[in-house]
Computed example of a mutant assay.
Amino acid sequence: MSRNVTVLDYGSGNIHSAVRALERVGANVTLSSKSSDVLEADGLVVPGVGAFAAVMQGLKDVDALRMIGRRVAGGRPVLGICVGLQVLFDEGVEHGVRTQGMGEWPGVVERLAADVVPHMGWNTVEAPAGSRLFSGLEDERFYFVHSYGVQKWDFDVTQPAMQPPLVTWANHGGPFVAAVENGPLSATQFHPEKSGDAGAALLENWLKGLG
């Protein structure tokens, strides 16, 4: 059964490659920022390239923060990509400027502690046991293009019944968060749409969890 997926259109680049990648794995894709398209889709994909602050402003301009929040609160799947992952954290720091993020997860997006930045190219990841996104993909490589990332993870589970998020790590000058799976909310720092067959398989895994 094909799933209806909306790719959020808020002025970010690289949107059409995400659309094509999702269509490749069988999704019915709508590129839109209309409330009905965003809220009613089986899955929502939030891509993002460029600066943290610019992406946050673009999301605010189309009322996406409210719509993403409504989907997550209702258990409706959302997948963030690249800066679409970063804005889900507390804040981003670029060139000394702090920008508030969506605060779904605690953490600060900062410049990578590496001699060579940006981190550009293929890299392996370390996925945790039980990951659905990386099922069957534990030994694959994925394509990264970024200068900033979340390098510390400090998530306190306040209720015993809560399942802690599953965090996947990669390394470039030190460890950084490569992906998070947290109930309906998932995100990757790398670009599955640029990651060939491995990225397509990851998107298929995400689609399988839409219902």
Score class of each variant (00 low, 15 high):
S186M: 15
A114R: 07
P118K: 14
P160R: 15
T124E: 15
V55F: 02
W122V: 08
A187M: 06
D156A: 13
E140I: 09
E138Y: 03
W169D: 04
R3E: 05
E140N: 12
G43K: 03
V116P: 00
G58I: 13
V93L: 14
A129E: 13
T30W: 08
V125I: 15
A73Y: 07
G75W: 03
Q151N: 08
P175F: 15
W105K: 06
N171F: 02
F190P: 05
M162W: 10
G48Y: 04
L133P: 14
V97W: 00
A161R: 15
E138Q: 13
A200V: 08
D115G: 15
A170T: 15
S33M: 07
V62D: 12
S32M: 01
E181I: 08
Q57V: 07
A113C: 06
S195A: 05
G211T: 06
G103P: 00
L39W: 00
R66I: 09
A51N: 09
L185N: 06
L44D: 01
G96V: 03
A53H: 07
Q100S: 03
H172S: 08
R71F: 03
E40C: 13
G130Q: 07
D156Y: 05
L31D: 03
D156C: 09
S36M: 09
H146W: 01
N123K: 07
A129Q: 11
V117K: 12
L137C: 09
D90N: 07
V117H: 10
P160N: 15
S35V: 11
L210R: 00
N182P: 00
A178W: 03
P77K: 00
E40A: 14
G48R: 14
K208Q: 10
S36R: 12
V78Y: 05
F190S: 08
D197L: 13
T6D: 01
V72P: 00
V116H: 13
Y10H: 13
A179Q: 09
A54T: 14
F190T: 09
R3G: 04
E104W: 12
R111N: 00
H146Q: 03
D139M: 04
N205T: 05
A27K: 14
M162T: 13
V46W: 06
S186V: 14
V7G: 01
V38R: 01
D37C: 11
P164R: 04
P106V: 07
V62C: 11
N4R: 14
K34Y: 06
G149I: 08
V180N: 10
T188D: 15
I15A: 09
H172W: 10
G80N: 12
G50R: 02
F176Y: 13
E204R: 15
E40Q: 14
K34P: 00
T99C: 01
T188P: 00
L112Q: 02
A21N: 01
V167A: 10
K60L: 11
G101V: 08
W169N: 10
V177F: 05
V7P: 00
I15E: 10
E193V: 12
Q159I: 11
F134D: 01
E204H: 11
E181C: 11
G174D: 06
G50P: 07
L65Q: 13
A178Y: 03
G26K: 12
D197V: 13
A54V: 14
K208F: 04
D115Y: 00
